[in-house]
Amino acid sequence: MDFPLIDAEPIWLSLQLAGVTVVILLALGTPIAWWLTQTRSRFRVVVEALVALPLVLPPTVLGFYLLILLGSHGWVGGPVQALTGSALSFSFTGLVFASTLYSLPFVVQPLHSAFESIGKTPMETAQSLGASRLDAFFSVITPLARRGYLTAMVLGFAHTLGEFGVVLMVGGNIPGKTKVISIEIYDRVEVLEYAQAHILSIGLLIFSFLVLVMVYSINRRLPMQVT
């Protein structure tokens, strides 16, 4: 056989995808989670439901609509193609877009419960001492919510690593661009290359187990409100 037993490219790609997605999700999830904590708007439940949608929807629904959206005729893919010359489907950027939607609840929900448990007092105290809201948020709230942030990062990362259905539908199985670990495992199993499939699967199994052990240790004293 002319290929090595294990190809590092899909692993590296999955790690990159998960890393980039988590960074985007923290930036996106923080204001959403904070707004959910503060608002009395009746749209709150609507936003909460939207955020939680990827938890209950089959990946095929997300995959189907992303395929339509991201293609060169799609609402998102069209303008992007006009700007950059290539559509989003079958690209790493497309997968980042998909993963951001797919893993959104896994970041927003831990942040939301962390902000809720902090309550209103620290923010009010900081403001009464003359801090601006933004300043107070970053110097008081964020440190207090560090467990929530840690949980959000770990879960968002792990969940993106475990993504399969959506990538199968919009990825196109391109080595180095969209062929992530889960797709690689699927491919190996399909052609009965069980040795390679085992190595990757066991690796992912151990990694995911360690991640969950970590999440539960972080939250030993905080109630888990992830799902």
């Binding site: 991201l70 293609g71 060169s72 799609g74 079958f90 196109g172 199985n173 391109i174």
Partner: peptide
């Protein structure tokens, strides 16, 4: 330029949706 469909039906679908 290559994208690989999981089977021939998905390959057709990639083109039909304008993604390829």
């Amino acid at each position: 330029s290559l994208v690989r469909g999981e089977n021939i039906a998905q390959t057709l679908q990639f083109v039909a949706t304008g993604n390829a």
